[in-house]
Nucleic acid binder design. Structure first.
Lengths: 166, 166
DNA sequence: TTCTAAATTGCGACTGAGTCGCAACTGGAG
DNA sequence: CTCCAGTTGCGACTCAGTCGCAATTTAGAA
């Protein structure tokens, strides 16, 4: 498979699949391709309009649907951290897990051969032909957890001080 | 933990947590507890009203939110097989994976020690404190796949016939 | 290059899940 | 039995996403 790093990968993929390239699709696809974070449909619309003002909301949804059908992008919920939006990212060879921190809202990505093995086991044992997987984890990230530890330490310090001064 | 089999498990859990039990909450919680399939908010509302006519949509959403916060139920998307609804199920000790068939719409459940190991690895390697996990898989179930095989066989038969008669 | 059919788009109205503020109501502690 | 903090119903609202249709545009053929 063409590496996702390559510049116009998504667009070339569409061309090779005989999909008609319009100025709107080009803008939308480039925005998704070059995104540095997970974008929802609204964000895609906004960014696409910076390149090409004539982009409609409906076109964004239709293009996203197209890319999903062609299995060029994945849809994420990111544990509904910010409402019911959906987020999109270019599909890569190896699926990865999204860790969503309920406290700071950061999304961390994680991948592991164990996940690949799990998928293989699912296919084998259930006879299920896997097309898409979505593994999302919600909780507290390392940073927020260490914040807890710091807070607990402060509490102890305060008590100690109180004990000393008391 | 109290086994999920037990009759009024969810309700008892609420009582023990000091949550006020109203007739509405009782109805909603019992419906979720006794569900034989995955229910969305609309289905919960409908079923709850069969027990207790005075149940409002808003109350259903508020109760679901409450149960989620108390970690008594899990929220599922089931790969958005039927629109953007969310489905709910009583949380069990061992997380399970939902396999959603894009063709027949059936939901299959799957669990594996490998999944438990994967979660452990995530915690350990990323320092993430896991609260919830959601692993959903989309594709074609065994039944639909075997349907394919049958169809392919038919095609071959037709070709053979054509070859013979031609 | 020009033409043309078929695909795509924009528009705007619509759907449907979920939220919210507030007045009325009620569970359960005392 | 009383009381009030917590809960509910109501209805209006938000917001993501969908849809039908007329107008526009692409890409291949001439």
């Amino acid at each position: 498979m063409t590496p996702a790093l390559e510049r116009r990968w998504l667009l070339d993929e569409l061309v090779s699949k005989g999909v008609r390239i319009t100025t709107q699709r080009r803008a939308i696809v480039e925005v998704i391709q070059e995104a540095k974070e997970h974008l929802d449909a609204g964000a895609v619309l906004e960014l696409a309009r910076q390149r090409e003002p004539n982009v409609d909301r409906a076109t964004v949804y239709r293009t996203i649907e197209l890319l999903k059908e062609l299995r060029l992008i994945d849809e994420l919920d990111l544990m509904h951290l910010e409402g019911e939006k959906h987020y999109y990212e270019v599909k890569t060879m190896k699926d990865h897990i999204h860790l969503a921190c309920f406290r700071c809202g950061r999304i961390e990505e994680f991948s592991s051969p164990l996940f690949e093995r799990l998928k293989a086991e699912i296919s084998k044992r259930s006879g299920f032909n896997i097309r898409v997987t979505r593994l999302e984890v919600g909780g507290s990230c390392r940073v927020c957890m260490s914040g807890d530890a710091a807070a607990e330490q402060e509490e102890k310090d305060e008590k100690t001080e109180a004990a000393i001064s008391g």
